[in-house]
Amino acid sequence: MLNPAKLNKRVKLLQLTRGEDDGFGGTTTWTVAATVWAEFLKARVSPGVIADDGAAVLVTQGMRIRARADIDKGWRVEHDGHQYEVYDVDRSDPEIYVLTTQEVRT
């Protein structure tokens, strides 16, 4: 069941927009598709591949938002100066989606 009080972070949903191809591949930009309320879940730390210096880890951030048809893998979420790439969208609940994201390092 949806608890609106937990949706306490204002985030922007960003979609990749491709510009007109002028023979050189065109330009791509991230445009704001919507601004919504979200709940940040506890970050998940998973062991990754073994690197030369030891084991690497993968840190993902779960987020809950109200269900919306347009959000999908490959989108980004922006909050407080940080951007997160959407790796998965769990649509098992018809009221709320859980996004699995990872912070984008620029």
Rank of each mutant, 00 (worst) to 15 (best):
residue 1 M to D: 10
residue 1 M to T: 10
residue 3 N to V: 09
residue 5 A to K: 12
residue 6 K to I: 10
residue 7 L to K: 08
residue 7 L to R: 10
residue 8 N to V: 02
residue 9 K to H: 15
residue 10 R to G: 03
residue 11 V to M: 03
residue 12 K to C: 05
residue 16 L to I: 13
residue 16 L to F: 00
residue 17 T to N: 11
residue 17 T to H: 07
residue 20 E to T: 13
residue 21 D to V: 01
residue 21 D to N: 15
residue 22 D to Q: 13
residue 23 G to V: 06
residue 23 G to W: 05
residue 23 G to K: 07
residue 23 G to M: 08
residue 26 G to H: 06
residue 27 T to K: 12
residue 27 T to A: 11
residue 28 T to D: 10
residue 29 T to P: 02
residue 29 T to Q: 12
residue 35 T to D: 05
residue 35 T to C: 06
residue 36 V to L: 09
residue 37 W to L: 14
residue 39 E to G: 06
residue 40 F to I: 11
residue 40 F to A: 11
residue 41 L to C: 07
residue 43 A to S: 15
residue 46 S to N: 12
residue 48 G to C: 04
residue 48 G to I: 00
residue 48 G to A: 02
residue 49 V to H: 10
residue 49 V to E: 15
residue 50 I to R: 12
residue 51 A to M: 11
residue 52 D to F: 15
residue 53 D to Q: 14
residue 54 G to M: 04
residue 55 A to L: 13
residue 55 A to R: 12
residue 60 T to Y: 00
residue 61 Q to V: 00
residue 61 Q to C: 01
residue 61 Q to P: 06
residue 63 M to G: 03
residue 65 I to T: 05
residue 65 I to R: 05
residue 67 A to V: 01
residue 69 A to P: 09
residue 70 D to S: 14
residue 71 I to L: 10
residue 72 D to E: 14
residue 75 W to L: 02
residue 75 W to E: 03
